[in-house]
Design a binder for these strands. Structure first.
Lengths: 219, 219, 219, 219
DNA sequence: CATGAATGAGGCTTCATTCAT
DNA sequence: CATGAATGAAGCCTCATTCAT
């Protein structure tokens, strides 16, 4: 795949082909790849959900593989754009809370219902996509969290923890529960439980884990 | 070759191992299903890794589907048996730590390298297996964690939190990081990082999140 | 090749013949099923004889089984249509002769060369097809013969016989000899013998068997 | 196949392997081949019905093909032996009746329930078996019928008909109805109808067809 | 541009045959 | 002799891909 052979602008490296068709196809493909995985996804079904014929897919994507890559790149792009817009706050706690809630808010959009499955099961088979994901999403988004935590530690708001590990801890809470919300792989309570309650609990859990007990009593 | 009285003819094309075969096949199948998912897994590869011919699989399993179910049930059984043997301790903190470390220890066994992928991607497609998993693993194993947390809250060791949610929080840490350890889907640091350091961090994070700040300072 | 304006490029790998395909395939399948039976018939061979690829069969028929059923239903339909058009005559003898010759004429068409084998060997394995055959062909076609015989008995032209049995007798002559004509399972004389002579003999035999010896001498 | 490499005794050319096992297997194989045809017959089922293991079949028969040939040869032998013992009578009519009833009696034995299917569908694919069948059964058994008919014509008992054709006519009645009796391929009346009534009707039909109307009135 | 009929490589599955026990 | 576990070739079927229309 060639994700970098573009002029070195500030634009993101993914590109959208012009017109509506590619978007229709990519949206349908995200659904189908999410539900069935790459191998079990059928172009017939993608075409049907996109409202186009099977041959039309090949007008815009060279192969099933390339369509999958386009889906991934498109999805990653949406996440990166969203992450870039998250506002910072005065305190580290408040910044972390905003970041967590922002992440949750984006992740729980219905269109990302099955994204986690792709991340877990399909991305590892595509080294170039994996590298792209790690570079664009992890390196950028996680760096934001890491900065917040470092700042909190420096200010004494947070306990002294290993920041890179702490980012993994807080994000694993968000990511894992977002999956449980839409997947039936865990007890049904997650289905009906108010999603607001879940993210509230996550924020509470994460802040409690990081809070510095030696800090000035700011009850 | 020295203790047999057989003439030194050609090696037999195969040996009779009726007791061993199903295990061999299931082990190989867990690997292959983990790596590729159900649809992309090829019986040829499973047979090759199991050291048997493709036809032999069908002596023990009626179909690819049934083999997959056998793999899942076998794996779940191993987890249930392991969970049943976890010892409890005096304090809730210590019990939780033991439970978390026990979970980590089991989950990081190499044979479960790809189990999380199956859990996330394949189980939702098999409602019967999913129900079996939820009943056998979640209902049992999570109940153990829930009991510990309830006890900790009751004793004042832990903050008052919603126990069922808290179980999800602590377990999502373990489960998610166990995946990151073996999958390349996250930054490479997890690969090389000492696994001991990871579970230490998780335990520290979880206990800090649950600790009751109002408890008598038992530093 | 002289009436088209197309450039003299390579031949197209295939042409679109959506209206023709099912018929092509059914015709080829009747041949192959007749020759080899259902189990031994290979879709590869059917496809080759139909001039299509193996996959094309599945555009029109869901399975080998369904293709077989389509062949049977199509063939039965042709027989029913033919039987419906057989003319009646004044005397019962003449009606019976026409019916027998009509049956013979249809049955000896080359496309029905192996139909008897399907009837004998494959239909009993498909209860739904068997019922369809019995209802559409036997109930209708045999009823025509039965009416003729009843009329002949009533008019004194035929001996008093059990009409339903008599139908079986006359038709077994036609059916069995039609098989012997095309199958090599009986002495080779049937192969070369003039088919006209066979049906003449059958008609003579059947009419002689039914003729009422007490009827007024109508030499 | 080598059906003739035996000492030129008066023995039939087929041979039974010694012991009970081959007979068990052949009997089971006749059933299974009759029911399913050669291609769809499974050695597993034959072994099961014979009460032996699959491997045992190969101790007595070199292949499925050879087992099938043994079944055919064995069955043909039984028919030939039975045909050879049929007594003759004074009049041609009586002789023919005895021959037809003898044929019917043998053919309706339960073990020959599916033999007709083999004759129709499988024998044509095996030229050597077909030749063997034609030589042993047709040439011999039909010759008996032919002699009877020739004698009847010579004595004036029968009409002047082509004897070889007449044999086919009379035998097609027997053979076809024997099939209908055990196969469900024709209207259910054949199933429940008294078999005695059927052969009575066949004899009546055949004799009426051949009777010489110009013969002295032997009412 | 868009379609969908046609293709054919590749996977799952069956089962005749072999052979260690 | 007898067994039945193991084999692997071969067949049905799927579906990504192509291309005439």
């Amino acid at each position: 795949m060639t994700m970098t052979d573009q002029p070195a602008t500030h634009d993101p490296r993914w590109r959208r082909l012009p017109g509506e068709r590619p978007t229709q196809i990519i949206d349908a493909a995200l659904d189908v790849f999410s539900e069935h995985g790459f191998a079990a996804a059928k172009l017939d079904e993608i075409a049907r959900r996109a409202g186009v014929s099977k041959g039309t897919i090949y007008l815009y994507f060279a192969s099933k593989e390339e369509l999958f890559k386009a889906v991934v790149i498109d999805t990653i792009g949406a996440q990166v754009r969203a992450a870039a817009q998250r506002p910072r706050a005065k305190s580290a706690s408040e910044s972390l809370e905003r970041a967590l809630r922002g992440h949750w808010s984006l992740a729980t959009e219905p269109k990302f219902d099955g994204w986690f499955r792709i991340l877990v099961s399909e991305l590892p088979k595509h080294p170039d996509l994996l590298e792209f994901y790690n570079h664009e999403v992890i390196d950028h988004a996680w760096a934001i969290f890491e900065d917040i935590i470092r700042a909190g530690i420096a200010s004494g708001e947070f306990r002294p923890v290993e920041p890179r590990l702490a980012v993994g801890f807080t994000n694993s809470l968000v990511v894992m529960h977002r999956h449980w919300v839409s997947s039936c792989s865990i007890r049904p309570e997650y289905q009906s439980r108010d999603r607001q309650q879940l993210i509230d609990g996550i924020v509470d859990f994460a802040l409690a884990a990081l809070r510095n007990p030696d800090a000035g009593s700011h009850a």
